[in-house]
Nucleic acid binder design. Structure first.
Lengths: 351, 351
DNA sequence: AATTAGCACTCAGAGATAAAGAGTGCTAAC
DNA sequence: GTTAGCACTCTTTATCTCTGAGTGCTAATT
């Protein structure tokens, strides 16, 4: 592949990213030392090779899916963040807040900086431990199951029973859970295990069954990844998209999950091409993971049109995810590493 | 006001609601026994009186804000729900689920039945009691404050401290909260009271201050009304609205709150007129309260275009809110009325 | 052999014009 | 007071033209 041809391709993508209009041979002359005729010939070849396309005969060229691929993989030059830029990005983060708020602040910052939608996908690793399970009565026949994991996630589920539990039943159940679930990896909570608990409940079995069902659901929800989309407005107002598609997409967000499910460990750029299954045509998704305790804790992502400013936005995304990783790790330094586990055991004894 | 004129106004609104097009004198002839010329004369008068308007000279009439007002207040005939319809509405409700799920199912049903957005506004009455407050350590320097109210609402807040609490500090704090907050009306948690607790903490004061701050926030959030909007898609695809307005509205939902804040105790219909502050032009909001234990527990609402099928949708809305009220009340029947309070005191003693 | 200038050609988009149709207001007759 | 009739208004839709950006091809140039 000719070096001039690559330069032309790069120029087309660069121009198209800023203008949004098909770019013609004359515009390229500013980037490549050649006459418009030469450029036209080269562009015609690039089209044959599948990197460019024409919306119609007498229009300029726009990059194809393959064109973008080549561009982001080898052509593009990533901007370097200056120290000043880094400082101003830092200023957008809630550095001292909780993990969730920290990541949210990054997500918000991204929507503002990029005019794209941003995504935070975080999941509780399957091997994290249950550090607390408790059943709390909250009203007539109403109970809450509360679960906390070793990585600090807390979730509860409200449950309505047909009958009220007696104090003994509740105490018995609570104690059983404390003794048998606490300290256990969360994905151990399987249907079989629930069944085991159920039979262990003896005469209380029938009454407690609904609670067990909810307990199971709660554990499932705990490990399910939690996806937060932000900046939907940017998608709706982006003229590169088909509004109907965006509306449908927003109405059924499950679509996104698969793009954040596969736990690629690195920066990932994907395009919605015709063959691809992502609902929004002409869109691209870039995402980068952030870690906690050395383990991937989630991904920070961006959903926008294909003609996104990759050179600028990828560094933003990477900087944020690295910064989050650093901040979450700094917090773990100190000498109380085993503090929670200690607490758990003492508490388990008390309750 | 002439009875024929009223009939004509009614016919215009009825027609406009189904067609969405300005309605002309000929179309009215099907509803009112008079020639098109007579109807035209009457319509001209209705226009002078401010009930109708013409988009342009040679078009039919559409109702003005005042026209709609008159229509919904006195002209409109509400449909009666047949027993069969009631049954099919019932089937859309999660009758045996928790309060939240029940109300959500109604909201979902409304979006499907009406092609409008629906709103659930629920608030914890200020006078409901705190039935449980607890601080739970969840990780290094991380704590969760958990609060449950007498009406069964549960909420927690994660809080990061600069230092870890010792067991004694935690126990002391927990005990203090249990003894001083449990059983107290939630709106008693004021800044002054927090300050009082702070001083009561003695030497632990400094360390616990952030937790107290979060406790205050938690109590505030508990009583703040919680608004859930659903069926945004219906707003975005409704051609009666300006898309930009809808997008802005969805981006900043606070707007809705004021319409559900004022606790009118009855069915309420409001229009977004020019003078009004609601962001979406040409929209109407109807809402009806639902109760629990005889007290308003929230409102169920509908946001749609002005030309909504009031005769049909108002009965839906009222039926659902009545049904929810009934279902929530049925649950309270039984003999365990004071059950929670009992539990609380025994638990308070233990912890 | 590669590059470039020149030119005819294509096509989308913007305006302009025209015709159709719905509905009105007014006048005069009932 | 009501109605038929008619001229008039104004939107909507379709058709047409014109313009300009950009191309592909050919022939000349380096």
């Amino acid at each position: 592949m000719d070096s001039r041809k690559l330069k032309i391709l790069q120029a087309v993508v660069d121009e198209y990213i800023v203008s949004g209009e098909p770019v013609g041979s004359k515009a390229i002359m500013a980037h490549v030392k050649a006459s418009s005729a030469t450029i036209r010939n080269e562009m015609a070849e690039l089209e044959k090779q599948g990197y460019l396309e024409q919306p119609h005969t007498s229009a300029g060229r726009i990059p194809t899916y393959n064109g973008y691929r080549l561009y982001v993989d080898t052509l593009m030059e990533r901007d370097q963040l200056s120290e000043e830029e880094k400082r101003s990005l830092d200023a957008m983060l809630d550095e001292s807040a909780t993990e969730e708020e920290l990541v949210n602040s990054a997500s918000l910052a991204l929507t503002q900086l990029t005019q794209c939608a941003s995504v935070v996908a975080s999941s509780t690793p399957k091997f994290s431990l249950i550090s607390k399970v408790e059943v709390i009565p909250t009203g007539k026949r109403m109970y809450v199951i509360l679960m906390i994991t070793s990585n600090g996630k807390i979730k509860n589920k409200v449950c309505r029973l047909e009958f009220d539990l007696t104090h003994e039943q509740l105490e018995f159940f609570d104690k059983y859970l404390a003794e048998n679930l606490q300290g256990m990896p969360i994905d151990n909570v399987s249907e079989e295990m629930i069944e085991k608990i159920r039979t262990a409940m003896g005469t209380y079995m029938v009454t407690l069954t609904p609670l067990l069902g909810e307990l199971f659901n709660l554990a499932k929800e705990m490990t399910a990844q939690d996806i937060k989309l932000r900046g939907e407005k940017n998608l709706l107002t982006c003229k590169d998209f088909d509004q109907g598609e965006i509306i449908d997409f927003l109405d059924n967000r499950k679509e996104i999950e698969k793009f954040f499910n596969d736990s690629f460990s690195d920066l990932q750029i994907s395009f919605s091409s015709e063959g691809d299954s992502f609902a929004i045509h002409n869109s691209s998704i870039i995402s980068a993971p952030f870690k906690k305790d050395g383990v991937t804790a989630g991904r920070l992502g961006l959903i926008g049109p294909m003609r996104i400013n990759y050179s600028k936005f990828i560094p933003y995304l990477e900087y944020f995810s690295q910064r989050i990783t650093t901040l979450l790790s700094e917090r773990d330094e100190g000498d109380e590493r085993l503090e929670i586990e200690e607490k758990n055991t003492t508490e388990g004894g008390n309750s």
